[in-house]
Amino acid sequence: MNPTLYRDFAQDFFTLHQCKIIEESSHHFKVKLTSDIDEEIMNRPFYWHYMKKMNRSGDPATLSFHLSQSENHEGIYLHAGTPKLHTLYRTAMKKGKMTRLYEATDVPNHHEALTPWFAINVLLHYRGKQTRNEHLALGLNLINGSIIPSFTESIWSESFKATVTDYTFPMTPIINLRSAYKRIEGYIESYVSRKTHEWAQQSIEQLKEEVTLLKSFYESGDMEEEQYQKEYDQLKERYEPRIIMEVINGGLFYLSGQTNAKLFKQLG
């Protein structure tokens, strides 16, 4: 992956959380953390516990990141595996898990109705003999039930606020969230079933082969039943194909008529 992607992400993370970038060049940047972010990502709970107890403000750390590897500079080399970067991912995902947002339209269009959508981003983990995963970003219209793929990307450049603006009002959803979630699950099931699954086929064959071997060994009397059961369970864990659905984040979004129309146009 392009190394500037990591840099962009890290810098956006820090600026979004009010940490000041105090030095910057094409190959490095330096950032002064806030107390909150220091506590969140620097893994020094005792220090902060002590500071709070003593009623002191504490001294948040300064981090410098480099885009290339060299012994000459102190600081963190930023690449796909940088542990600190992974801490940032985790923190970002924790802090951005759930939301409710109203689109902020700049045209004062009196009493415009905002349409409620349930946005949900999931990772599908395909697990069997081998693994991979797949992203799905779905949006479900809570008035008419239609589902749109790549929802989050489609509304990426619109602006949203936590409170509804004076000129607009949110419509009450007709479909409640729990049944919306059920529909999403159903959608994912049918999405998955429309694809071919060589990986699952291979996993099943491998599982069969190894179970047969284990069984014949067990039946020949060289193995206790308890041991057999344990080995059998381990084989299933190792090969049995399954898809694990993990929700990254989700939100209730109220969209303006204009954005709504754009989405449906996309849907065709």
Binding site: F9, A92, K95, G96, M98, T99, L101, T152
Partner: peptide, 14 residues
């Protein structure tokens, strides 16, 4: 509940 920016950042992280 998070802001729009935080929501998008989490999505990028994933």
């Amino acid at each position: 509940l998070c802001t729009w920016e935080q929501f998008k950042l989490a999505y990028r992280a994933s």
